[in-house]
């Protein structure tokens, strides 16, 4: 009896940014049909290019071999992007779904305004990580800079290292989990009791991110909700 052969894993289609323009690569990735068979893509020699792999809407894997500039995987909606290097400002900004995995460090505003998906940063993230996030999950295995989680609306920001000054300033309904300590809290951000539900969320995210950490070592921060309605008695907080 003949046995069905398991399809061989496809070799990724490789784009070399040293020889092809960014526009070609983004155009091809953005035009992929929803059920494409070409599910593995690689980008060589990014050399700090901006706006690499932005606006991809199919669940393909994209491996970027090197450092990228601003807005890598911006507005990603379903792709699984791995950056084998550092990422410039605004990595995965306004992501809708999918995953973005930074193997190195990330610059400012990582995951800014992102609505969904998972952003994993193996190293540190600079200032304003998760600024104005709108539902994304972010796991930073290192530390984050000042004003991280500023005006964060919803989603979860997990920080295994230390959080810089003014964490969670003007926070709305996002959760911020910190293991390594905080430098200071921003306006209207306070420590919350670690509920079972919050601990479950954290545990799931740590597992998804492959983080070797115990949820019991984290503190949870959220909004005190005192700034939800403008009141002159709160003027000192603004």
């Amino acid at each position: 009896m003949r046995r069905a052969l398991k399809p061989a894993a496809r070799e990724p289609v490789v784009f070399d940014l040293a020889t092809r323009p960014l526009r070609d690569i983004n155009a091809i990735l953005q035009a992929l049909p929803a059920h494409t068979n070409e599910t593995a893509w690689a980008i060589a020699n990014p050399r700090g290019a901006h706006a690499v792999a932005v606006g991809v809407t199919t669940p393909v894997s994209i491996s970027i071999d090197g450092h990228v500039g601003y807005y890598c995987a911006g507005m990603n909606d379903g792709a699984h992007v791995t950056i084998a290097g550092n990422a410039g400002p605004g990595v995965a900004e306004n992501m809708m779904s999918g995953t973005v995995h930074v193997m190195g460090d990330a610059s400012q505003a990582a995951g800014a305004t992102a609505h969904g998906g998972l952003l994993i940063i193996e190293g540190n993230a600079s200032a304003r990580c998760g600024i104005s996030m709108k539902g994304v999950d972010i796991v930073v295995k290192g530390s984050v800079g000042h004003m991280s989680g500023f005006m964060a609306q919803s989603g979860n920001l997990v920080i295994l290292g230390v959080a810089g000054e003014a964490l969670g300033d003007s926070l709305y309904e996002a959760n911020i989990f910190v293991r390594g300590g905080i430098t200071s809290l921003g306006a209207d951000c306070e420590e919350k009791p670690m509920t079972e539900a919050a601990s479950a969320i954290l545990e799931t995210l740590l597992k998804k991110a492959g983080a070797d950490a115990d949820p019991k070592d984290f503190k949870l921060f959220g909004s005190a909700r005192t700034l939800y309605h403008f009141h002159v008695d709160n003027a000192d907080a603004y």
Binding site: A27, A51, G55, Y70
Partner: peptide, 13 residues
Amino acid sequence: EIKILELRELTNW
């Protein structure tokens, strides 16, 4: 300038 580049790349120029 880089933000505008991203917006153009997102929308095929």
